[in-house]
Amino acid sequence: MTMPVKVWDVWVRLTHWMVAGIVLWNLFGPTDSTHRLLGYVAAGLVVARIAWGFVGSRSARFSAWWPTPSHLIDYLRSLVAGKPLHHLSHNPLGGLMALFLWLLILGLAVSGWIMRLDAFWGEEWPQEIHTWLSIAVEVCVCVHIAAAVLMSFWTRENLIRAMVTGYKRRNATPKS
């Protein structure tokens, strides 16, 4: 038996979609003052979301979805067995991807800021780091979207809709 349950609060959904929009704009738009400003806004939103991971709603908290090694192993085993464990919040791989994307976005903001400092004017390494981080973000975003679509079909739970509406279905015996 399943029933809808509110999982993602408005702050989680707002930061998710705002950061997603900013990242898409900054990956494919011009690299001008708007790019810089939006990069700093994205970093600020990520910092705010990280803070929300400590004080926010139950499913937004790190304690609800932190990808520990044992959780990752259990989840990977369930995938290999063809019966993915249901998680009310992020599954362990989704949680790992969220953390990785947040670190990359913060790294992009820092490397972008460093590129503008007089101390590093003319240095190529900050630009190279920024470029490699942006490529890593592109790859991770593609994997993130593909995984959300694939898992939505596999588990018959529309994860994209859940990030829009805030509701997921609760199985009779959810994992977390």
Rank of each mutant, 00 (worst) to 15 (best):
S59E: 15
V41K: 01
Y75N: 11
A42H: 01
S33K: 12
R58I: 12
V12P: 02
G21R: 00
H87C: 03
V5D: 02
S33P: 03
L72T: 11
I73T: 13
R49M: 13
L96H: 07
A43K: 00
S89Q: 07
W66L: 12
G82E: 07
D32H: 14
V10E: 12
L99D: 08
V47Y: 01
L14P: 02
F62S: 04
H35W: 14
R49A: 11
G29M: 03
F62R: 05
G94D: 04
L93W: 13
S59G: 04
F62E: 07
Y40I: 01
W8P: 06
V12Q: 03
G95W: 10
A48R: 04
V19L: 02
V10Y: 14
L85Q: 13
V41L: 14
S89I: 04
F54M: 04
A98V: 15
G29I: 01
D74Y: 13
G39F: 01
H86C: 06
D9Y: 15
H71R: 14
A43G: 06
G56F: 10
W8Y: 13
R77I: 04
I73C: 04
V47Q: 02
L76F: 15
T34Q: 09
W11A: 13
R61G: 08
H71Y: 12
V10K: 09
L88F: 03
G56I: 05
F54K: 05
D74T: 10
D74M: 08
I73F: 12
L38S: 07
L45Q: 02
H71G: 03
K83C: 08
P92C: 07
G56T: 08
L14Q: 05
G95P: 05
V19D: 01
H86G: 05
S33V: 07
D9G: 06
H16Q: 09
W66N: 02
R13T: 11
V7W: 00
G53T: 15
W52V: 12
V5L: 04
S89W: 08
H35I: 07
A98F: 07
F54T: 03
S59L: 05
L14N: 03
A98R: 02
S63T: 13
L37R: 10
I22D: 00
M97I: 05
R77W: 13
G56H: 10
H16R: 08
Y40H: 06
H71C: 04
A64D: 14
W25E: 00
A98Q: 11
F54A: 03
W52I: 07
R58H: 11
G39P: 00
R58G: 05
L93C: 08
D32I: 09
L76I: 15
T31K: 11
A48S: 14
D9M: 10
G39D: 00
W17T: 06
H87K: 04
H16S: 06
R77L: 10
V10F: 15
V47C: 07
V47L: 14
F28Q: 00
P67C: 03
L14M: 12
T31V: 09
S78D: 13
F28N: 00
R36E: 06
H86V: 12
H35L: 05
V12I: 15
V19P: 01
V23L: 02
F62L: 14
S57Q: 13
T31S: 03
A42C: 03
T68E: 10
S70G: 05
L76K: 06
M97D: 04
G56E: 11
V80E: 10
P84N: 11
A81C: 04
Y40L: 02
